[in-house]
Nucleic acid binder design. Structure first.
Lengths: 230, 230
DNA sequence: TACTGAAAGATACACTGTATCGAATCGATG
DNA sequence: CATCGATTCGATACAGTGTATCTTTCAGTA
């Protein structure tokens, strides 16, 4: 018996999210939500299952391992990376900026990018768009060029996100960051073992993340342009 | 009583590695050994402790968390990254090659590079060497230039190691790799959704990893050279 | 209706990083 | 020298992980 009350007085059970038919898409969406909110460490099969009102082992009907789930997450992120523009240079720049933008919205992407070969449909579609925009170029140069831009973006985005996290970890604002890391570096430089580094850190203008990213990207695109039109 | 035998007949106990005084260096060396042998997932505080004939919690006298251990591992790897050469271009190229070389010897480095800011003494020393070699250059350009090269290296190395692992996972040799991934891509291309990609994969020369890395690096260094001497 | 196959899910296992707390050690003091 | 207090150390415990296994359930067929 459910309770002492008669049916008439007893409230209906709270309508749990009806165990909607599962799908990879729903699973991946739930995982991404968790990762967006609390980082990649917050993505566990148990938590994903709970979010979907399902028992953990159920997920193994849709994925073979957690790694596959991460692959699906990355491919879902690639769905948002849609390079546009006229000419190879604009498209490559757009690819870079769009990837960076995606990593800003999904910081966990920085942890995953480049970690495994990306062969999902959306990643392939992104590749297709980019390669199609380079059709004037020597066919043997296309993959190296795209690969180089991708490599730069992956590395740059990783470092940028890593720095952002470190700042956040020391207390959210730049003041505390300076107060926490500054002294350490001060002491390190005070040893006199890193004179050149100390000079640069002291004297050079400190570019913000946007400019730093674009500057490195310009180096690369300039170099590509020089080799391509030769 | 230890056993029924008299001392005289009883063999001495096998000389366990004497619980030598612990140190960060010993801990890190043990962790690196594990990671070199079986990958980063094989590095657990319990396994490291066991390798040192010590109980796990003992390690927390030397490190505050596993993350710190990973930081120490990366810094230890930086000790092997010693760029050399005459002139900024050679030194930057050397930095890139040395980093790549280190990641080849310690594949786990690819998982860690760029994941957190590197401020250990060896990483700073590497930075010092590089920055010192760029002293002719506009001080405001130095950090962006070094950062761009580092970003490229991190991304390129990650992708290279990821590919290497994927190949290994399908059965060690290139034949099986072609047999496993080839058909998948064949089918993907057969859908006609990636015509440009398919054309390039079919027609282009496939560079080996060394050439691919150097080609991308040359793009970048060329672009840097153009901006610097201006 | 009985039986068989497949699907679903609870349970279990081996392992993780690390908080906690009791025991042991050591220095200082009566 | 004895005793006490503080400090260090490490065994135990906890809450979590990915996933193998095995039991249960149920649909479809004979």
């Amino acid at each position: 018996m459910v309770s002492g009350m008669l049916v008439w007085e007893r409230p209906e059970p709270p309508d749990r999210p009806v165990p909607a038919p599962l799908s990879r898409e729903r699973i991946v969406r739930a995982a991404i939500q968790l990762a967006d909110a609390d980082g990649l460490d917050a993505v566990s099969l148990r938590k994903v299952a709970t979010a979907l009102d399902v028992r953990p082992m159920r997920l193994y009907g849709y994925i073979a391992s957690k790694e596959e789930l991460l692959d699906l997450m990355v491919d879902a992120a690639y769905a948002e990376i849609r390079p546009v523009g006229d000419g190879w240079r604009e498209v490559l720049r757009s690819l870079a900026e769009a990837t960076r933008h995606a990593a800003h919205e999904h910081e966990w992407l920085a942890d995953l990018l480049g970690g495994r070969p990306q062969l999902g449909p959306h990643a392939l579609a992104t590749g297709e768009t980019v390669v199609a925009a380079l059709d004037g170029i020597d066919v043997d140069a296309i993959m190296p060029v795209v690969g180089a831009v991708n490599a730069y973006v992956i590395g740059a985005v990783r470092r940028e996100i890593a720095e952002r996290r470190a700042e956040r970890a020391t207390g959210m604002d730049e003041k505390r960051w300076q107060a926490s890391l500054g002294p350490y570096l001060k002491r390190a430089f005070a040893t006199g073992r890193f004179p050149a580094l100390a000079t640069v850190v002291r004297d050079a203008a400190h570019l913000d993340a946007d400019h730093t990213f674009r500057m490195g990207l310009d180096f690369l695109l300039d170099g590509i342009e020089a080799r391509i039109s030769r």
